[in-house]
Structures are given as structure tokens and as C-alpha cells.
């Protein structure tokens, strides 16, 4: 009887830990995804600016990056966080990703209109990096 109870406790603990790491892992992988998208877009835009790439390739790369970042956005919105710490982690990650999506959308509109995108790559990347660190460090 006692071993049975211990097993249940262990299972519950494991589930709780899994739930906890679920938010962290979810946030981290969404941040990864958005970060990869932003860096792709930045590379595509820079190559275009240096005259090494064609307009359709740049436009497509930005489109694809925006799609990926939006997927990350909806991925993080779907995470249910039960604790205060988890909520903070998730919200901070969501803010950074929202920013990334906005930036990518602006960049895509600029490229579609034939302008050079005036994107603030450094700031957004730094924000994503900060959120990623916060995900890893939170108690």
C-alpha cells in the first residue's frame, strides 16, 4: 500500500515538474524559433542590400521568416502557466516575440514596397536574447 502511494506521489511530482518545464521549454523553443527567423530575415536583407540576392528571394525569405515567427507567437500564446514565475517567464518571452513579429512585418512591407527596410535588428535580437536568458535563469 505504501509503495503504491509513493508511486502516485512520484508520478504527480513528475507531472508537476513536466508542467513546469513545459512552460520553460515552450518559451525557450518559441524564442529559438523567433530568433532563428529574425536572424534569417536579417541575413536576407543584408545580402539584398549588398546586391548579392534578388528581390523575389529576399521577399520570400522575409515571408517565410514572418510565418515562422507568427507560429512561435501562437505557440507561446497557447502555453498555460499556472505559477507566478511561469507567467512572468511566458509574458516576457511573448513580449519579445511580439516585437520580433512586428519588426519582420515592417521589414516585409518595406521590401514589398521596394524600400530598404529600416529595421532595428540589434534591439530585437538583444531583446530575444534577454528573454532567453531570463527563461533559463528564473528560479
Amino acid at each position: 500500500m505504501r509503495t503504491w502511494a509513493a508511486a502516485v506521489v512520484a508520478l504527480l511530482l513528475a507531472a508537476a515538474l513536466a508542467g513546469c518545464s513545459g512552460v520553460r521549454q515552450g518559451s525557450a523553443s518559441s524564442l529559438d524559433q523567433a530568433g532563428s527567423a529574425v536572424r534569417t530575415a536579417r541575413l536576407a536583407v543584408e545580402l539584398d542590400a549588398r546586391g548579392r540576392s534578388t528581390h523575389p528571394v529576399t521577399a520570400t525569405a522575409l515571408d517565410d521568416a514572418l510565418t515562422k515567427a507568427s507560429q512561435a507567437q501562437s505557440g507561446i500564446a497557447a502555453l498555460g502557466a499556472s505559477t507566478r514565475v511561469n507567467r512572468r517567464i511566458r509574458d516576457e518571452a511573448a513580449r519579445a516575440i511580439d516585437d520580433a513579429v512586428r519588426l519582420l512585418a515592417d521589414a516585409r512591407d518595406a521590401v514589398d514596397a521596394g524600400r530598404a527596410p529600416a529595421a532595428d535588428w540589434d534591439r530585437v535580437e538583444a531583446e530575444l536574447a534577454r528573454a532567453t536568458v531570463a527563461t533559463g535563469e528564473a528560479p
Binding site: 524559433q33 532563428s36 536572424r39 534569417t40 545580402l47 540576392s53 517565410d64 515562422k68
Partner: peptide
């Protein structure tokens, strides 16, 4: 090195653009 993970075909082209420019992309 840029920590970019390939998830679309357009990304496959970026190294080509960097290495060889528009002709290589074509």
C-alpha cells in the same frame, strides 16, 4: 554560425547568395 535553423527552402539559398551573388542564386 548565425544560429539559423533551416525550416524553409528560401533559407537554403542564402548561403549561395552570400557566396556567389545573383548569378549563383539564379
Amino acid at each position: 554560425p548565425q544560429n539559423v535553423e533551416v525550416t524553409s527552402l528560401s533559407q537554403v539559398l542564402l548561403p549561395i547568395a552570400q557566396a556567389g551573388g545573383k548569378l549563383a542564386v539564379a
